[in-house]
Design a protein around this nucleic acid. Structure first.
Lengths: 243, 243
DNA sequence: CGTTGTGTTGATATTAATCAACAAGTGTGG
DNA sequence: CCACACTTGTTGATTAATATCAACACAACG
């Protein structure tokens, strides 16, 4: 299975094909190595060109995916072009589960990425044969749902300042999926435009707000795409509206 | 099983205990009558006092629920009291599925309601024994997720006018769960305050916007809690930002 | 018959969007 | 190597949408 020995993220790290059985998900303990091996057997590793929508809203939901390298933006569009990013799918994330026969959103890579593709009928058969897999996907769907609820609170009731602070704090916890501590220094793989479309703001407001958090010494921005959290406690208070 | 013969909605209708095996979900065909009967065996029918939060954010997630009568509001709070309603759970809706060991949101009835309660360990055992049940819950979680994504688009990118129009259109399709056509005349079980907290607006803006849609003859409001859609095509265009 | 809760409407304030200019990088070709 | 265009991000001035503050209408209820 060549995709189990490929390279992801920093050169030299062994690729972690989360869906097909690698460490990221075996660590979570919800799925046996045996089942993961079976899943790997039907996985089709695929390289996604940047800006190619490998999931398109409204098209037949023929497959299910796992992100094996890179980050995808998941988004919905209005007819006039307004865009809402509903989430970012980082390495390890499952994608494209649907009840309806068409996708409810689109997904494309931010920069180069790799995914494992599972055809729906084969996945269905596999789930029927190995219920632990379905259990794992139910857990994934539930945690997506929890994230979506948190995002609805952000979009519906938080100020621009609270949204940006929440975003920075959440991003710093991103590697937590691998049971690591939240990082105080990390990279943002997405552009200001993506951040704006995720937070329901404009790029200008995102930029201004980050600048203000920097001038207040809550964060530092050594480069536009790199964040250092300088005062996590205060930043978290801002994110919760308690500041 | 006394809750299978009780009354819900309009007096005279036989109660449809969606979780415990009644028609609403058997119609959907995803779960066998046999499995539904097994589910019914562990269901604890419960009457919920109005405004009693039967699910409280942050508390141990000990149970899972199905709404058997009435409508619940699902919500999250910020420390200063700002509230976001993340969804309404009408009769038939499943509630409280969680990966974490605490609930991520709160739920309470809008007016009187009844629910069926399932303790988590018993549900877990039942799901292990009857995978069709897990499949059904995965479907439920996926459709909640689709609704959440649609709501994120609404909250992040739609204007007040588009939000209110979207809400009215979505509510008119609510009985669709039972495979009925969208209604042009229906009741709103929730207050203006609930609508505002769901749409990320204030009560005043909701009221003003409904008034304007009425003055434009897109809808009629015979009573504050009853809506008649007078021009569905136009209303849908407004909801999509195409008007 | 007043009181209370809910919804509506009006006047004003505030936040974030829009419009606009500019700065810093990146890549291309001369 | 440098001039140029092009992209991305930042900052400033103004506008527009919705929140806030306030008054009032109406029904339900004691």
């Amino acid at each position: 299975m060549q995709h189990h020995s490929a390279v992801v993220g920093r050169p030299g790290d062994p690729e972690t094909c989360a869906a097909c059985g690698a460490r990221a998900h075996s660590v979570c303990g919800a799925i046996s190595n045996q089942d993961l091996a079976r899943l790997a057997a039907i996985a089709v590793p695929t390289v996604v060109e940047p800006h190619h929508a490998f999931i398109a809203e409204g098209e037949p939901a023929e497959a299910f995916f796992n992100v094996t390298a890179g980050t995808a933006r998941l988004f919905k569009l209005l007819p006039d072009g307004r865009q809402q990013i509903t989430g970012f799918a980082d390495t390890g994330h499952f994608l494209g589960l649907a009840v309806s026969d068409t996708y409810a959103f689109s997904a494309e890579g931010i920069g180069p990425m790799r995914i494992c593709r599972f055809s729906r009928p084969r996945l269905r058969r596999l789930m029927d044969d190995f219920p632990a897999l379905e259990q794992r996907l139910l857990q994934a769907a539930c945690s997506d749902l929890v994230a979506a609820q948190e995002q609805m609170l952000l979009l519906g009731r938080k100020t621009a300042r609270e949204r940006v602070a929440s975003f920075v704090v959440a991003r710093s916890r991103q590697p937590m999926a691998c049971r690591r501590a939240p990082l105080d220094r990390f990279d943002l793989p997405m552009s200001r435009s993506d951040i704006a479309d995720y937070l329901g703001l404009t790029i200008e407001t995102v930029s201004r707000t980050l600048s203000r958090l920097r001038s207040e010494r809550l964060i530092a921005l050594p480069r536009p795409d790199q964040v250092i959290i300088q005062n996590r406690a205060s930043l978290e208070r801002v994110a919760e509206g308690t500041a």
